[in-house]
């Protein structure tokens, strides 16, 4: 289970690196959406690993509500670049 988690951290490092080096706004937004879903899945995995369902509920909430911020931001950035 720990190996699974470390592989997930490696997968998380790719979009972070991408967000660091790419200059285009939309590429950064893609990296952000990828990171947002990956972190919430990781929270779920950790909650199963520790058998702690308080953390699990938080993971599901972040997964289902957190994406709304991304949509709001995509629209604001679109308005800015017009």
């Amino acid at each position: 289970m720990t190996i699974v988690l470390i592989a997930m951290i490696l997968a998380l490092a790719i979009p972070i690196y991408e967000a660091c080096q790419d200059e285009d706004v939309w590429q950064k937004m893609l990296a952000f959406s990828s990171i947002a879903s990956k972190t919430s899945i990781m929270i779920l995995v950790i909650s199963v690993l520790r058998n702690d369902w308080m953390i699990g509920v938080v993971g599901v909430l972040i997964l289902s509500v957190g994406n709304a911020a991304l949509m709001l931001m995509a629209h604001i950035i679109k308005r800015i670049s017009d």
Binding site: I16, A19, V25, M29, F32, A36, T39, G66, A69, L70
Partner: peptide, 9 residues
């Protein structure tokens, strides 16, 4: 955008 990434992490 990177602040959003920081929030997720």
């Amino acid at each position: 955008i990177i602040r959003g990434i920081l929030g997720a992490v």
